[in-house]
Amino acid sequence: MFRRKMYDVLLDWKSRSQGRTAMLVEGARRVGKSTVVEEFARREYRSYILVYFAEASRDVRELFDDVSDLDYLFLQLQLRYSARLFDGESLIIFDEVQMCPRVRQAVKQLVRDGRYDYIETGSLVLIHRNTRDILIPSDEERARMRPMDLEEFLWARGGDATVPLLRQAFASRRPLGERLSRKLMRDFRLYMLVGGMPQAVDALLRTNDLLAVDDVKRVIVDLYEEDMHKISLSDKLPVNLGMVYENVVAQELTAHGRRLFYHTWPKPGTTRNYKIDFIVPDGKKVSPVEVKSSNYRTHASPDAFCGKYSSRVGRRYLVYTKDLDRDGAVDCIPTYMSAFL
Rank of each mutant, 00 (worst) to 15 (best):
D87Y: 15
L75S: 15
Y317R: 07
S311G: 08
L211H: 12
V194S: 00
E89I: 04
R258Y: 14
P147I: 01
R4G: 00
S82M: 13
V194N: 00
R42N: 10
F40S: 09
T271A: 15
S68H: 14
I136R: 15
R144I: 05
T321P: 01
M99T: 14
A54D: 12
P302Q: 07
S287F: 00
Y7F: 12
R43L: 13
K33E: 10
R179W: 11
L165A: 15
L184P: 06
P281T: 05
R173F: 01
D65V: 10
G283A: 00
G314K: 04
Y118V: 03
I279K: 05
N273W: 06
D325R: 07
T162A: 13
M192N: 03
D66R: 11
I92G: 09
D215E: 14
S234M: 14
H229K: 11
M6A: 14
M228Y: 12
Q168I: 11
L190H: 07
Y309R: 08
L237K: 09
E151F: 11
F153D: 02
M6E: 12
F53E: 04
E225N: 00
D331M: 03
F170G: 05
D69K: 08
L79W: 11
M185W: 02
K275G: 10
K292S: 02
Y191H: 08
S17G: 10
D139V: 11
T207K: 08
Y118N: 05
D59H: 12
E140V: 12
D327K: 07
I276Q: 01
W155A: 02
V239H: 13
M337V: 00
Q105W: 11
M148W: 01
A250G: 15
D149G: 05
P164T: 00
P175D: 04
T264P: 03
R297K: 12
V36W: 07
A250C: 13
Y116T: 03
V249C: 12
D71F: 10
Q76G: 03
L180F: 14
E26T: 06
P137L: 11
L341F: 02
D235W: 13
F74C: 06
R43I: 12
